[in-house]
Measured scan of single mutants.
Amino acid sequence: KEYCRTLFAYEGTNEDELTFKEGEIIHLISKETGEAGWWRGELNGKEGVFPDNFAVQINEL
């Protein structure tokens, strides 16, 4: 499994977007979303897309 840590808080504006606080760990599902600048991940049981410049991939939890 791949993970990323959020660098900033983000408020999702669409139903398919994740909302998160700074410093949260998102399970990274895919970097290929069909839309440049967006990754797909899962946080707190919800799957959605989020801007990749708001997070950095990490090697271990």
Rank of each mutant, 00 (worst) to 15 (best):
P51S: 04
Y10N: 01
N14S: 13
W39Y: 04
Y3Q: 02
E24P: 03
K1G: 09
N14I: 10
K21F: 06
R5D: 02
T6N: 00
G23E: 04
E60H: 15
T19M: 04
V56I: 08
D16K: 14
E2F: 07
K1M: 11
K46F: 04
F54N: 03
E35D: 14
S30P: 02
A55H: 00
E2A: 13
E22V: 10
C4Q: 00
T33F: 08
N53R: 15
A36H: 10
D52T: 12
F8M: 15
Y10H: 07
K31D: 02
G41N: 01
E47N: 10
N59P: 13
F54Q: 07
A55P: 02
S30I: 02
L18G: 00
V56P: 04
H27T: 15
V56F: 06
W38E: 01
L28K: 05
E35R: 15
G37F: 05
K46R: 14
K1S: 09
E42A: 14
E11K: 12
L28F: 05
T33L: 07
W39K: 05
A9G: 08
Q57I: 14
R40A: 06
K21G: 13
L43C: 09
F54L: 15
I26W: 04
P51E: 04
R40L: 14
Y10L: 02
L43E: 02
E11G: 07
D16N: 14
K31Y: 03
Y10T: 01
G12R: 05
T6A: 14
D52W: 10
W38F: 11
W39P: 02
G37R: 03
G41C: 00
N53M: 10
E2W: 05
T33W: 07
K1F: 07
R40D: 04
N44R: 12
G45A: 06
L43F: 05
L7H: 03
L18I: 05
I58Q: 09
T19D: 05
G12F: 03
I25W: 02
E17K: 03
I29H: 04
G34L: 05
I25R: 07
E2H: 15
D16T: 13
I25H: 06
I58S: 09
P51T: 01
F20H: 04
E42W: 08
F20A: 01
F54G: 08
A9M: 08
K21V: 11
S30E: 10
G37S: 02
G48H: 02
H27I: 08
H27L: 12
F50T: 02
E35L: 13
I58M: 14
G41E: 01
F54E: 03
K46A: 11
D52F: 11
E2G: 12
G23A: 02
E17V: 05
V49I: 14
L28H: 03
L7W: 05
I25N: 06
E15L: 10
E2Y: 11
L28S: 02
A9C: 11
G45R: 03
R5G: 01
L61Y: 15
L43I: 14
G34Y: 03
T13V: 12
E32V: 11
T19P: 06
F50Y: 02
K46T: 08
E42V: 10
F54C: 15
N44W: 04
V56H: 08
V49K: 14
H27M: 12
T6I: 05
T6K: 04
N53F: 11
K31P: 02
E32S: 12
C4D: 00
E15R: 11
N14K: 13
G34A: 09
P51H: 01
G23H: 03
W39S: 10
K46L: 09
T19F: 04
S30N: 11
E32M: 08
A9Q: 12
G23W: 05
N59H: 12
E11H: 11
K21I: 08
E42T: 10
G12H: 01
E17H: 12
T33R: 06
A9W: 06
E22Y: 00
E22Q: 12
N44I: 01
E35N: 14
F8C: 13
I29A: 03
E32H: 10
K46Q: 08
E47Q: 14
E15K: 08
L7T: 14
W39M: 08
I29M: 10
E15A: 12
E17D: 09
L28Q: 00
A55W: 03
E11Y: 10
R40G: 01
L28D: 01
L61H: 14
K31E: 11
